[in-house]
Computed example of a mutant assay.
Amino acid sequence: MDSTLKLFSSAAVAGRKPSREEAEAAVRTLIAWLGDDPDREGLRDTPRRVVSAYEELYAGYPQDPGTLLARTFKDVGGYHDMVLVRDIAFYSHCEHHMLPFFGHVHIAYYPNDGVVGLSKMARVVEAYARRLQTQETMTAQITDALENALSPRGVAVMVEAEHMCMSMRGVQKQGSSTMTSRFTGLFHDEAAEREKFLNLVRPTGR
């Protein structure tokens, strides 16, 4: 067993998160497996840079989306109509190939007992997007987070994304997009509310 495998084996036995040193060793192993020399000048610092990039790309793991939605504003002048934030851009990585998928999220809800700051919905998207994901799971997670935190009269979430695992490999079909949606409460029970949401999020030149 080489030194890299020993490091991962010891981490697994101890039930702990691998260290940064172990993560960088894993990157070195992958570079060597690809057939390149991890010690050549251009690649010498690549393991460190990759791990630093991963810390940013997967920064959603330590975040609790529930806390992002904990503060609500109840003094909204009696407003009870739909609140919609559309075109929230995101970047994520699929859990099957660790390749990027990216696009936009549209979120709407009907307030029940107050509203949440608009930026918080974008932060919830980021918290879930910056993890290994599937688009379907992320759609459900965003919906559940809003349901649990706000107890609204209804939530609508739509995600539009392009998946690099389809564009760069496999069928290699560039430009294809995947759409997922989930509706609760009024949006689930009343077709007119779903149609209102869909009309508001349909592309206007994008």
Rank of each mutant, 00 (worst) to 15 (best):
E147N: 15
G103E: 01
T134F: 01
P152K: 02
M138Q: 04
G103W: 00
F187D: 00
T137S: 13
R182W: 12
L186T: 10
Q135E: 12
V105E: 01
D144Y: 03
L200Y: 03
H106I: 08
N112A: 14
A192G: 06
M158P: 00
E147K: 09
A127N: 04
T180Q: 01
D144W: 02
V201I: 14
R153G: 15
T178R: 05
V171G: 07
A145K: 01
N112T: 15
F187G: 00
I107R: 03
V157T: 07
E195V: 09
I107H: 06
H104R: 14
V125Y: 00
R182N: 10
L132A: 13
M179H: 14
P111G: 07
A156I: 04
N112L: 11
A191R: 09
M179C: 11
T178S: 11
Y128W: 13
I142R: 03
M166P: 01
M164D: 06
T139M: 03
H106R: 12
A149E: 03
T137P: 09
H163R: 04
A129K: 00
A161L: 05
L186A: 12
V157Q: 02
A129D: 04
T178Y: 03
S181I: 06
K173D: 05
L146Q: 02
I142F: 02
G154S: 06
A140P: 09
V201E: 08
D144S: 14
S151K: 15
S181A: 13
Y128D: 06
S181Y: 13
V157R: 01
K196W: 06
V171P: 11
R194G: 04
R169E: 03
D144E: 14
M179P: 04
Y128I: 09
F187I: 02
L146W: 14
V157N: 02
Y128G: 08
Y110G: 11
L200H: 05
V105N: 03
T180D: 01
M168V: 11
S176R: 02
S119P: 14
M168I: 11
V124I: 10
I107E: 04
T180H: 07
L146C: 09
T143G: 08
G117Q: 07
P152A: 05
M166T: 04
L146K: 01
E160D: 13
M164S: 11
V201P: 00
E136R: 00
R130Q: 14
P152T: 05
Y109M: 08
V171I: 13
L132F: 13
Q174L: 10
N148T: 15
L132R: 06
A129Q: 02
K173N: 08
V159E: 02
H163T: 07
A149T: 10
V125L: 05
M158F: 05
L118D: 09
G175F: 10
M179A: 12
Q174T: 14
T139S: 05
V125F: 00
